[in-house]
Amino acid sequence: MTAIVIENLGRSFVTTTGTIRRTQKTVTALDNVSLTVEPGELFGLLGPNGAGKTTLTRILSTVLLPSSGRAEVLGLDVVRDAKQLRPRIGMVYGGERGLYWRLSGRDNIQYFADLYLVPPEVSRKRIPELLELVGLKDRAEERVEGYSRGMKQRLHIARGLINDPDVLFLDEPTIGLDPIAARELRTVIADLHNAGKTIFLTSHYMYEVDALCQRVAVVNKGQIVMMDTPAALKQLVANLEVVEVECLSVSSEAINRLRDHPRVEAVHVDNRDQVQVLQIQAPGGVKYVPEFLHLLDGANIQKVVTRQPTLEDAYVKLLGKDAISV
């Protein structure tokens, strides 16, 4: 049986603006999305902020109803069979909310164990195991309000696993974590996958889905742009070279001049603290570096490097300008 089946799923939201004259606006978060996830698969959903990743995760975990289409998890319809489905899935939403800050880490897990109808004799054994798994055993008796962001995130993972779910939904689980905490969390996710769990992971970190996922769907503006293995996505840019130009003050006119260059396929601007890094994708890009630098005249260039393309470059190519928010 397929773990997750999504057919033509759509979801729109109505938002209102104004106080006296209220204007309604319909925003489409998901537009005709279809995909399947096999049992035991670690599937990644990659996209920029506002692409529809969280909306899809919430529909699949029965928290939100779809506007159109249908979705099944473990053969159960997420709308019609929500009650039967809920004990069999776990969900972890990103961020610091979703925990009882005044309770200890252990009491939080116990609270959710009861809400998920885990028998006391099982939860007594499982809670210490989960706290050990996420590295919180020594801090389990402390109130969550004193936890770091990374600790809260790991507690979220433990909470999501309390009912030993067959399918685990992870919505941007490493968002906001420092690099070490994020790496530790990715190790936990990989271990869960190795233990046979089906995992549906959303992220806007390319390296994360590249490192963890067997298949990945790139979603933008509520639609799936491409779905394949990370290796196949990288093939999209296999013939390209990437020129990275680090500069202090590049104008939008200069970027447009670069985009108009006949050999350039995409330009992605990455703002890193005080500097801007232009990632220029072009076949045989190294040969055209002098031309690129000429087009960037006055940009106060600090460094130029060339490298082989990554999944991130495939993502940039797929999403074009929309990838800028990543």
Partner: peptide
């Protein structure tokens, strides 16, 4: 606390 979504999705 942002725990209402979890309350919605809890089987109990």
């Amino acid at each position: 606390n942002g725990t209402l979504p979890y309350l919605i999705a809890s089987p109990a």
